[in-house]
């Protein structure tokens, strides 16, 4: 007598796009890249977050009522997040047309908020111990930055611009940080409550092991780090960027799906998944 799934790929896709889009803005604007690149990053960020928002609205039961979600910004992180998305998209759009320092700062704050709140959105859910940790917003922010950096790498190449010398180094650093965070996350979860440990086991050895080991760990962390260290060529950097994006998307997927609640007596594992 299980209940059908609550949130599917659309929500995971949104979590990823919001992170990567906001991350791209943060990396480009925060990294003081050239104005043309910063404007392009702003546009890209706004578009990706916009697509993500469309996924989210598309996931609503009654799509035409989406505006109602703005009504509870004091307690619901969906409301807070909607305001942040709105702020990011509007400031990003304005920045694209009229770049300036103030707007850059507003945009970056909104971008950081957008990238982080997705982690808070899940992290505050006490019922699902695999999510319920302050590590989650940190991990999502770092993943947003690494995927954002990957997007900037690809954007630079696409625009035929010279690559910023620090981007490669910083991407590598972000990947190392993210790897440590993922390791720490799983370590904490395995040691945590039975439900969190079960979720972690399902990620490490169970249903999502391919998403975790192939997607996030191999494609998203180890291989790109290795490439960035060992293969200096530009196209290698672009390949690693694509892999980082895949890893970030996988991260959102297993993180979302493995967020089980504690089973009541008589409930099976399938019953308690999201």
């Amino acid at each position: 007598m299980g209940q059908p799934q609550t949130w599917d790929w659309k929500v995971a896709g949104y979590l990823f796009l919001a992170g990567a889009g906001a991350g791209a803005f943060l990396v480009a604007v925060g990294g003081n890249l050239s104005l043309s690149l910063s404007r392009a990053a702003a546009l890209l960020g706004v578009c990706l977050v916009g697509v993500g928002a469309c996924l989210l609205i598309g996931d609503l039961g009654i799509k035409l009522r989406f505006w109602r979600v703005l009504s509870n910004p004091t307690s619901s992180w969906i409301s807070i997040g909607s305001w942040l998305i709105g702020l990011f998209m509007s400031s990003g759009t304005i920045y694209f047309f009229f770049p300036g320092a103030t707007l850059a700062w507003v945009g970056m704050l909104a971008a950081a908020g957008t990238a982080t709140y997705t982690g808070v959105l899940l992290g505050v859910v006490k019922a699902r111990p695999f999510w319920n940790t302050p590590l989650l917003p940190v991990l999502f922010l770092v993943s947003a930055l690494s995927t954002g950096a990957a997007l900037i790498t690809l954007l630079t190449a696409w625009m035929g611009l010279p690559a910023a010398p620090w981007l490669r180094r910083d991407t590598f650093g972000l990947l190392i940080l993210e790897g440590l965070l993922v390791f720490l996350y799983m370590l904490v979860m395995v040691q945590s409550t039975a439900t969190a440990a079960r979720s972690a086991r399902e990620v490490l050895r169970g249903r999502w092991r391919f998403w975790f080991w192939l997607g996030t760990v191999s494609a998203g962390l180890i291989l790109p780090s290795a490439i960035l260290t060992l293969a200096p060529g530009r196209s290698w950097g672009e390949l690693s960027a694509v892999m980082v994006l895949a890893g970030g998307a996988s991260l959102r997927w297993w993180m979302l799906r493995a967020g089980a609640r504690r089973a009541l007596p008589g409930e099976s594992w399938a019953d308690v998944l999201i």
Binding site: Q3, G61, I62, R65, S76
Partner: peptide
């Protein structure tokens, strides 16, 4: 008022809400 976002379903520790 409900838009069907199902955040409440994720938040309920008892699995008591359905779409």
């Amino acid at each position: 008022k409900c838009v069907g976002c199902r955040y409440c379903m994720a938040a309920c520790p008892y699995g008591a809400r359905v779409f």
